[in-house]
Amino acid sequence: MLDAAEWGIVALSLKVGGVAMLVTLPVAFALAWLLARVRFPGKVIVDAAIHLPLVVPPVVTGWLLLLAFGPNGPIGGWLQDWFGITVLFRWTGAAIAAGVMALPLMVRAMRISIEAVDRRLENAARTLGAGPWRVFWTLTLPLSIPGVLAGAVLGFARSIGEFGATITFVSNVPGETQTLPLAIYSALQQPGADALVWRLSCVSVGLSLIALIASELLTRRAGRGLHVL
């Protein structure tokens, strides 16, 4: 089985993936709701921009993140000046990269589930005296929650597997930014580390399978349009 250092890699991957997913979740939901429910000029462009990380080479996304979060970048400079923190070569940077790469997948899954909520039920709620916020909290959100969770699980799986943007943005620092794919990549560079590659790859495939199955089960529930909680 795995030794302590390898468990450390798995734990770091789960931490990076988990934080990336949790932080991206509200952003993805807000964007999904906007795309599903609001008509506004430039919607096509916003939609395309959200999906960019899905099609742009990950190395480009990583490089853009480096420009934005670097010491002279607009966000990086601000973080440094106001809070004295940097995300370069840190696990927080790896989580940012993973979150950005997972965003389009999460938005897609959530948008579909929000679009599937029956507007006629929302209209019925309005006539019963519920304002837009109450309709959102009591109907839109609970009825779309299976799809929202499916999107979150999918985003988590994508985050754990993130490689290109991460290695470009925060490099490959053991114990800090070296998640499972980066550790596998490093092991492939060493002679005689085949066994390690096998073990880490098996863990990777196992985690992804679990996440995909969970996501699929939640999506089916969402399709039936019934409560899950």
Partner: peptide
Amino acid sequence: ERRRAGYVFQDARLFPH
């Protein structure tokens, strides 16, 4: 929500959850 209409639809539109 402020008209206070009691509206009964053709399909009952009960909230499924």
